[in-house]
Amino acid sequence: MGCCQSSSDAEAERAPLLHTESVRSPRSAAKDTAQRTGRFTARHVGVPDLNQRFMDVAETFNKQQENYNKMKENLQTIAIWYNCQTNDSLSQCLKKIKEEHDQHHISLEVKGYDFLLVVRSEAKIPEKLKRTQENMGELSKAAKAVMSVGTKLHEMIDSLLKAEENMTEQIEDAESQHQERKRLEDNLKENLRQAKRAKELSPKYRNEAGELLKEVALLSGITP
């Protein structure tokens, strides 16, 4: 970077490190999308090590969020199929599943870190029940994935936020041109803002996944 940087190069550096559907949308639309989805879009800050750290946090958080959304979607799908009054209560849905398929012996079982809907019956399993078993398997994978990165992500974000002052100094040392330095500092502020937002959202995802797993444990007969 420097005085000879072309406008196209400058535009390229303004582009997010992680490309999302909103990258080419108008700024307002991109902001609306970010507000709605909470995705972390890391931006260049002119220091390779910091770029990589922000990108690692963004990738980890976005993956956790993706799995959280899958978890919610599978719960809602099962709730819709069985007309559950609340779409986040696995207990209610399991009761409805057993009522609708009362000729089958259905149970929710935990095996290792996974849970599954087990059907023990000599009768042919209906397609709807087979799909429910598949959804329950996807629900288990998603919940486990949300939980698995929680601690690591928290540590990664905290490490970034604690080094905020040092990051500004690194950018000042790396870029002498005032206008370019100002742009990079603005990108840093945006990254830190998104990191703080991820710090708020991630525990929410983890807590919901944890509550689901506790509910599964109770439903499967596992006691603390």
Rank of each mutant, 00 (worst) to 15 (best):
M1I: 04
G2R: 03
G2Q: 02
C3K: 05
C3Y: 14
C4G: 04
C4N: 09
S6T: 15
S7R: 08
S8W: 11
D9H: 12
D9S: 15
A10G: 05
A10Y: 14
E11Y: 15
R14Y: 14
A15E: 13
L18R: 04
L18I: 15
V23K: 12
S25P: 13
A29L: 14
A30E: 14
K31L: 11
T33N: 06
T33W: 15
Q35K: 08
R36L: 07
G38E: 07
R43L: 15
V47E: 08
D49W: 10
L50H: 08
M55T: 13
V57A: 08
A58F: 10
A58R: 06
F61R: 01
N62E: 01
Q65C: 10
Q65R: 07
E66A: 06
N67C: 10
K70D: 03
K70N: 07
M71T: 04
M71H: 06
K72N: 07
E73M: 02
E73A: 04
Q76E: 09
T77V: 09
W81M: 02
W81R: 03
Y82M: 06
Y82T: 02
N83L: 11
T86Y: 15
D88S: 08
S89T: 10
S91T: 13
C93L: 00
K96W: 04
I97D: 00
E100A: 03
D102M: 09
Q103T: 11
Q103N: 08
H104N: 01
S107C: 05
L108R: 01
V110P: 03
V110Q: 08
V110G: 01
K111M: 11
Y113M: 02
D114C: 02
L117F: 02
R120H: 10
R120K: 08
S121Y: 01
S121W: 05
A123C: 01
K124P: 02
K124A: 10
P126E: 01
E127I: 13
L129E: 01
K130M: 06
E134T: 09
M136Q: 00
M136E: 00
A142F: 07
A145E: 08
V146H: 02
S148E: 11
S148W: 02
V149C: 12
M156F: 12
I157N: 10
S159T: 15
K162G: 03
K162M: 11
E165Q: 10
E169Q: 10
E180L: 14
K182H: 14
L184C: 00
N187Q: 10
Q194D: 07
A195N: 04
K199R: 13
K199N: 09
E200S: 06
E200I: 09
L201S: 01
S202F: 03
A209I: 03
G210I: 04
E211D: 09
L213A: 02
L213D: 00
L213S: 00
L219H: 06
I222E: 04
T223Y: 14
P224V: 05
